[in-house]
């Protein structure tokens, strides 16, 4: 199979390979796929206080199109807000990389990876605000009791 120039470019010069601290509160990590299926993508985002994704990293086990799809995904999420990043669709990746039909699943996986990373980040945010809420909750409970 011949690869598009853009797939080759991302494969040969992948953008944003690496890792972010998955335990940090401002980092969201998405790991999708399975070794048995031949692709695993890990995409990580770091979101600043304005809600903008200021950094993104990936590592991918998979074919050239999977590597290119995740590389492109990190490029696209950077500089976007969480809401904007949620709007990235696999068809956009297919189009940008000129993926053939048998490789569409790579783009789907990349979209899944973005969503998983965003979901992980949002879960951490909720957990953090819940920690604050729980203080309120206690006082609410106390109030109820007093009432």
């Amino acid at each position: 199979m011949a690869y598009s120039d853009k797939v080759l470019d991302h494969y040969n010069h992948p953008r944003n390979i690496g890792s972010l601290d998955k335990n940090a509160a401002d980092v969201g990590t998405g790991v999708v796929g399975a070794p048995e299926c031949g692709d695993v993508m890990r995409l990580q985002i770091k979101v600043n206080e304005k809600g903008v994704i200021e950094d993104a990293k990936f590592k991918t086990f998979g074919c050239g199109s999977a590597i290119a799809s995740s590389s492109l995904a990190t490029e696209w999420v950077k500089g976007r807000t969480v809401e904007q990043a949620l709007k990235i669709r696999n068809v956009d990746i297919v189009e940008e990389l000129a993926l053939p039909p048998v490789k569409v699943h790579c783009s789907v996986l990349a979209e899944d990876a973005i969503r998983a990373a965003l979901a992980d980040y949002q879960k951490k945010q909720v957990a953090a605000s819940c920690a604050v809420d729980s203080g309120d909750g206690n006082s609410a409970e106390a109030t109820t009791k007093a009432g």
Partner: peptide, 11 residues
């Protein structure tokens, strides 16, 4: 890796 819960996709 055998112990990790993966999320195989349906595509």
């Amino acid at each position: 890796l055998k112990e990790v819960k993966w999320s195989p996709t349906e595509h």
